[in-house]
């Protein structure tokens, strides 16, 4: 189908885009990669009056290493991150970027758009939650920096005011001895995962000094599995500790039954994914180069 008629506005700077949002009001939506918005408009589930296109704003797509952090321009495409040697220094970022949907989506979809949409099934929020991540929000008067944990409020709801937009995403590089991994189960390439698990940990020998575990697609937002983390923190990672983490992750999950799977199945699955992600993260923390891909049906 064709979308309903809308007014198209092309912003030449992020500042101008913000001004347009203020002026156009609630009926305006930002167009970044458009990989969710455009299909929704074509199905007429979303019918914005105005689209403010960010794609022609120069200098919004970059990956910079600065002061122990990686800075991503809001319109950096998933594919650019997938193919970036800089981003690959934090392997979990590559796991995420390389596994989002299919090539076509990765070539268009953006990291800023994904975070701002806050889809419960989105990949980036799950992964970035395991790292120290800040979202730069540009408003009419000022730019504020919001920690990711405060940025995503609920399903499809963020801390962004209507006339604010995501300008940059800043990810602090994890310390030495860190390893991370992101694994999702996807029924086919283009679809959202059934469940996903992101693990970022710091190893000291065979003891887990610290760990962050986030679960995707099993709640209204990405879920931080605190009990699962506690089961590993300060522990040697034994089969018993792994099982405890797996069970705690299952308990933390709050999935809905849908075509991707039943509640009980998703709960079982997310535990298994956490276990696998921990194993890969550990090996990476020990300096091993491990390629990991999503699991497909």
């Amino acid at each position: 189908m064709y979308p309903r008629a809308f007014h198209y506005h092309r912003a030449s700077s992020l500042k101008e885009a913000v001004a347009m949002l203020s002026q156009l009001g609630d009926d305006a939506k930002l167009l970044a990669g458009g990989q969710s918005l455009i299909p929704l408009m074509k199905l007429r589930f979303a019918n914005p009056q105005h689209l403010v296109d960010l794609n022609f704003v120069p200098g919004t797509s970059y990956i910079k290493e600065e002061g122990g952090a990686l800075r991503f321009g809001a319109l950096t495409r998933h594919a650019e991150i997938e193919n970036s040697a800089t981003a690959a220094k934090i392997p979990i970022l590559h796991d995420c970027a390389a596994g989002i949907a299919d090539v076509q989506v990765r070539n268009r979809g953006t990291i800023g758009g994904s975070l701002a949409e806050a889809d419960p099934s989105g990949d980036w929020a799950v992964v970035l939650m395991t790292l120290s991540t800040e979202v730069c929000c540009l408003g009419a008067k000022k730019t504020r920096t919001v920690p990711l944990s405060d940025f995503i409020k609920d399903a499809y709801t963020t801390a962004l005011a209507h006339d604010e937009l995501v300008s940059e995403v800043v990810v602090k590089a994890p310390p030495k001895g860190s390893g991370g991994a992101y694994i999702a189960f996807k029924r086919s390439a283009p679809v959202y995962p059934t469940a996903s698990a992101a693990v970022q940990l710091i190893m000291d020998g065979d003891v887990c000094k610290d760990v962050v575990i986030a679960l995707g697609c099993v709640g209204l937002t990405a879920i931080k599995a605190k009990d699962a983390e506690a089961a590993l923190r300060g522990q040697r990672i034994t089969d018993k500790a792994l099982s405890a983490a797996m069970e705690a992750a299952r308990a933390a999950a709050d999935p809905q039954s849908d075509m991707r799977g039943s509640t009980d199945y998703k709960r079982a699955l997310v535990g298994a994914l956490v276990k696998r992600a921990i194993e890969v993260a550990m090996r990476r923390a020990h300096g091993e180069q491990v390629e990991v891909g999503h699991i497909y049906a």
Binding site: A189, V191, M259
Partner: peptide, 29 residues
């Protein structure tokens, strides 16, 4: 055998009306 099924709920709503839900097989599978 593994991915594609036309699913209806008890009142006849089709639950697999897009490729996101019907998940046709692709090369990666």
């Amino acid at each position: 055998a593994l991915m594609e099924s036309c699913v209806y709920d008890a009142v006849g709503n089709m639950l697999t009306s897009t490729f996101s839900d019907y998940t046709p097989i692709t090369a990666v599978n």
